[in-house]
């Protein structure tokens, strides 16, 4: 069965969506990602959707859901590389993904994650 690969990059997980997301694939990704977060004790997830050119309301909602689930599992999620057309579509659909952090590209997303992790880690270390 087709699956979206989830790569472990250091302390983060990187999900690169390179194919057209169909509903089944999105559901599988949701399962796999939550599994991986728990297994690897990850605190940061990057979802790269730069190759995604078509979204519908379901995929939009799935993106939001995946981000929320990761947050519940204490992993910060950043969606990166959204295409202008996709952004406009999501906004027109009324799905502005509140609560999901975004960045222009993987590099900036990584920076953002690092920033937020050092902030929390530093805090923990000082506490400990």
């Amino acid at each position: 069965m087709e699956r979206i690969p989830i790569l472990k990059m250091g302390e983060f997980l990187l999900v690169t969506i390179q194919v057209d997301m169909h509903d089944r694939l999105a559901l599988t990704l949701q399962d796999d990602l939550t599994e991986m977060i728990v297994k690897n004790r990850t605190h940061g997830v990057l979802i790269d959707i730069s190759a995604l050119e078509v979204v519908d309301s379901f995929i939009g909602r799935m993106l939001g859901n995946i981000a929320s689930m990761s947050r519940v599992l204490d992993a910060a999620t950043v969606v990166v590389g959204m295409q202008p057309a996709v952004a406009i579509t999501l906004v027109e659909l009324g799905l502005s993904l509140p609560g999901v952090r975004t960045a222009l590209n993987v590099e900036k997303g990584m920076e953002l994650l690092r920033g937020s992790l050092t902030a929390t880690n530093g805090h923990a270390r000082r506490q400990g």
Partner: peptide
């Protein structure tokens, strides 16, 4: 607000 939301989705 739509414009702002779209820009935010792009990471700006």
């Amino acid at each position: 607000l739509k414009t702002v939301a779209a820009a935010r989705l792009m990471g700006a």
